[in-house]
């Protein structure tokens, strides 16, 4: 490498390093520390060892939130890995107006989650548009209580997360599709390989890296879901839609149990980390 003043690289790094140190590195370490205290913003934090974690272990609210988040990941991630792939295949053709169509499909991604959640809350009304469709088509004979029935609430919230993410993951797949050299298909054409077999043996294997990215990103997003829950259900009814992050938020900023909330955050961190690593390993292995 070239010679340059030895301190020069550090000068370039300094502003970013200082900022990230202040808002990420230091707080991350601090959060681990706080999880071992009974910090509540009011009085001096006291060291309590692993008490917060012991409390988590026996806290039914925590387990309920964890169960909801696990369910969230289990439903949302497969949908967001598969559905956008079909969308990407659909828009991966130079049809007239395709740029506009792609943009429209991407629209929910740029919409803030609060707005998306409100849009859907309006659709979910007992006498709202969605129930009208269901009744008019005879799928149900009673209005569905999307957000007010504990059996439905979590799934209704999931739908918003999926709706908001479709366009984003579609674009990732689209990029993957477009990076496959056309010559591969031409060679297959020359060899008389059918379109379906080309999809199976060329397209899908070469899209694996994109699928890995989508899986990891959608897992993390599903694990961290907050806005949808906050705006639509506040975790209710009967905590049926209370996710880990919402539990964390309530513990920290409604109950001011910062130490306990930090412990929830630490668990969240390790869960997202484990999800990413497992996903990556699983996808690389195959």
């Amino acid at each position: 490498m070239r010679p340059h003043s030895p301190i020069l690289p550090y000068l370039f790094l300094l502003p970013a390093a200082a900022t990230l140190g202040l808002v990420v590195i230091y707080p991350a370490l601090k959060a681990f520390g706080l999880s071992l205290t009974d910090f509540n913003m009011i009085r001096e934090a006291r060291w309590v060892g692993f008490d917060n974690y012991a409390r988590l272990w026996s806290d039914p609210f925590f387990w309920n939130a964890l169960k909801n988040s696990a369910l969230y990941v289990a439903v949302v991630v497969p949908v967001l890995v598969v559905a956008p792939l079909f969308l990407a295949v659909l828009v991966n053709r130079a049809l007239p107006g395709i740029t506009f169509i792609r943009a429209v499909l991407y629209l929910p991604v740029v919409t803030s989650l609060v707005v998306s959640a409100l849009l859907w809350k309006w659709l979910y009304e007992e006498r709202g548009l969605l129930n009208h469709f269901l009744l008019a088509t005879g799928i149900t004979d009673q209005p569905v209580a999307f957000l007010t029935d504990p059996a439905n609430a979590l799934f209704s919230v999931m739908a918003v997360t999926i709706w908001s993410g479709l366009g984003y993951y579609m674009v990732i797949y689209l990029a993957g599709l477009q990076s496959i050299p056309r010559s591969l298909y031409e060679a297959a054409d020359v060899d008389g390989v059918s379109a379906w077999k080309q999809t199976l043996h060329i397209t899908l294997p070469l899209l694996k890296p994109s699928a890995a990215v989508v899986t990891v990103m959608s897992s993390i997003a599903a694990m961290k879901v907050f806005e949808e829950v906050y705006v639509m259900t506040q975790g209710g009814p009967l905590d049926a839609s209370k996710t880990l992050v919402f539990h964390l938020y309530q513990s920290a900023f409604e109950d001011f149990e910062m130490g306990y909330a930090s412990a929830v955050g630490v668990v969240l961190f390790f869960l997202t980390l484990a999800l990413s690593l497992v996903n990556l390993r699983w996808l690389r292995a195959r």
């Binding site: 990230l20 202040l22 808002v23 990420v24 590195i25 230091y26 707080p27 991350a28 601090k30 959060a31 706080l34 913003m41 993390i220 694990m223 961290k224 907050f226 992050v245 964390l248 938020y249 920290a252 910062m258 909330a261 930090s262 955050g265 630490v266 969240l268 961190f269 997202t272 980390l273 990413s276």
Partner: peptide, 17 residues
């Protein structure tokens, strides 16, 4: 590492800061 840490873990210390 700082990309891996969810903001939800950081927000309490950042809030305090």
């Amino acid at each position: 590492a700082s990309m891996m840490v969810p903001f939800q873990l950081l927000m309490i210390p950042v809030y305090e800061l």
